[in-house]
Simulated scan of single mutants.
Amino acid sequence: MTTAAALRSACLALPGAQETFPFGPQTMVFKVGGKMFALVPQDGTPPTMSVKCDPDLAAQLRETHEQVRPGYHLDKRHWNTVVCDGTLPDRFLRELLEDSYDLVVAKLPKRVQRELDWPGLAG
């Protein structure tokens, strides 16, 4: 996923994902249940994506991968910005997106989780 278009497709493949532009036409913001789970600037070379992350894992990922940085203009404790220059495997990038999505969906009302047929819904 080394293009903004590929990142967009991966985000929109998640159930209930919506693309919005609250910060202007340059930045695609992906939401589920009205809450952000990913941001992708359209003009970055290489492209980047910002994703929500568990704070402990966020710090660990930054230490392990030079392409993972504190969230750009976001809460740096809970968000990472990832440079998608082809050095990180696509599967890894998808897992970061899916983890971000799951963190957001986990906080949504159970009714919305059921509508999304979210596998993390207990019971």
Rank of each mutant, 00 (worst) to 15 (best):
T45S: 15
W118Q: 01
R77A: 00
L121C: 13
L7C: 02
L121Q: 04
H73D: 04
V105P: 03
V82Y: 02
R77C: 11
A4H: 04
T48W: 12
H65V: 02
C11H: 03
T20L: 01
T2R: 14
P41A: 11
V105A: 02
P109Y: 06
L74E: 10
A13M: 07
E115A: 12
K110V: 13
P70G: 10
Q42L: 14
L74R: 08
D75S: 11
M49K: 04
T27Y: 07
D54G: 12
E66Q: 15
A122H: 14
R69T: 10
P41I: 08
T87N: 01
D90W: 09
V104T: 03
K31E: 07
A10K: 07
A38N: 08
L12I: 06
P109E: 01
P55Q: 13
Q42F: 05
D75N: 15
Y72V: 04
Q67I: 08
E19Q: 08
L7M: 02
D43I: 07
F23Y: 11
Y72S: 10
K35R: 14
D43P: 00
L61K: 06
P47G: 10
R111G: 01
L108W: 01
A106L: 09
D75K: 14
V32Q: 04
T3D: 07
F92W: 09
L12R: 07
Q18N: 13
T20V: 13
A17L: 10
Q67K: 10
F30H: 00
M1W: 04
K107V: 09
Q60C: 11
S9A: 14
V40W: 03
T2W: 12
K110L: 11
L7W: 02
Y101Q: 05
Q42D: 12
G44C: 09
P119N: 06
A106R: 15
T20C: 01
